[in-house]
Design a protein around this nucleic acid. Structure first.
Lengths: 193, 193
DNA sequence: TGCTAAACGCAAGTGTGACTTGCGTTAGCA
DNA sequence: TGCTAACGCAAGTCACACTTGCGTTTAGCA
């Protein structure tokens, strides 16, 4: 019990620089190895930031990786408005497919499915809640345009679109074909008939 | 180097008994903890079989778990023939859903998506090839009955059905609703409209 | 029923990677 | 320019996958 210090944080300069270097190193490494091989030691070595510093800053490997991946994926949304349900969906799903084809995108899917700690669980819930909410607006607009009767199956439809792609790369370990977005959207829109 | 022995295997009695005890212990443990916590040490302790024996028999943790899960899932197939495409699909998907709701079923999905070694990769390919082939026969029969024009999107449709459920439990960590099979099949059959 | 060696138990050890800690050094910021 | 948060460094703990040499049990065959 030494004298308690006020502990004034210093978000500027060095701290911010360190954070950026660590995250950049992690993203680079994701392009060179499978996500499971992404150890804290390797990230430390590549970034030049000491391992103990990383642990002091993030606490756990899971927290670090979660931070890395959310940083990467944060940029990639804003629901499109092409004027038709099919156009909006194809654009949305194609963007997700493009992302999932990148090492960081695959890592996000992989680690999102495997991470078991509470922090990641909270972030995961928020992440998907946001995505599903944005999808809902697309179906909502389609309902107002009269393209569909109601948006009651919108959530399940969106889940099927995303889920099929995740399943393809995670469980089957097969690539996403170039026309996956069109084919999936047409399937979910029209059915097998 | 040493004198080579003829190495006559002994599949009977003790060997078979040991194998059964280890697999049974693993399945029991899957009901008590998340699949990631299933260590070889724990399986050894629960089964009464020594850890070194397990490693001599299976070689790696991945190989053991793969063996365990395939043993469990082996029983659960045979494509139904209800007379209608919807009936066949609902029955098939409901059976998969029931399985995925069990600890062993969840573990199969989880570990199938996370295991990275070559042995598991081979087994995984064979596993899904078998499932997709069986699904194809369902759509084939529907084509012959005239229910659908062609079975060209059968693979993607089946992938969407299975993939949505895997995504739900792996990536979103949410339960499969009781009516998930009917809702999914109706979506894939008729589309959103 | 007795022999032989495969299969097993046991103890001891290796290697890796997550995570911690005490201490001296660097560098934001008032 | 001084205070101290943030960092580097060294050393260490712990859990778990996987190995190995050796003595003991037991399956399977004559």
């Amino acid at each position: 019990m030494g004298g308690m210090s006020n502990a004034i944080p210093r978000p500027g300069g060095r701290t911010a620089r360190t954070r950026k270097e660590v995250i950049a190193a992690a993203i680079t490494l994701l392009g060179e190895m499978p996500p499971a091989d992404l150890t804290v030691g390797r990230i430390a070595a590549r970034s030049g930031v000491h391992e103990s510093t990383i642990y002091r800053k993030w606490g756990t490997r899971e927290a670090l990786i979660t931070d890395v991946l959310l940083t990467v994926s944060a940029e990639r949304l804003t629901p499109p408005d092409t004027g038709s349900l099919r156009g909006d969906l194809v654009e949305t799903i194609a963007a997700v497919a493009d992302f999932l084809r990148t090492p960081a995108g695959y890592a996000l899917a992989y680690l999102g499915a495997t991470a078991d700690d509470k922090t990641t669980a909270t972030v995961r819930d928020a992440f998907w809640a946001d995505r599903f909410a944005k999808a809902q607006t697309i179906f909502q607009r389609a309902t107002e345009r009269g393209e569909i009767d109601d948006a009651s199956s919108a959530q399940l439809a969106y889940e099927a679109l995303i889920g099929t792609m995740h399943f393809r790369i995670l469980s089957r370990r097969r690539p996403l074909d170039p026309d996956i977005a069109e084919r999936l959207v047409d399937l979910i829109l029209n059915g097998v008939r």
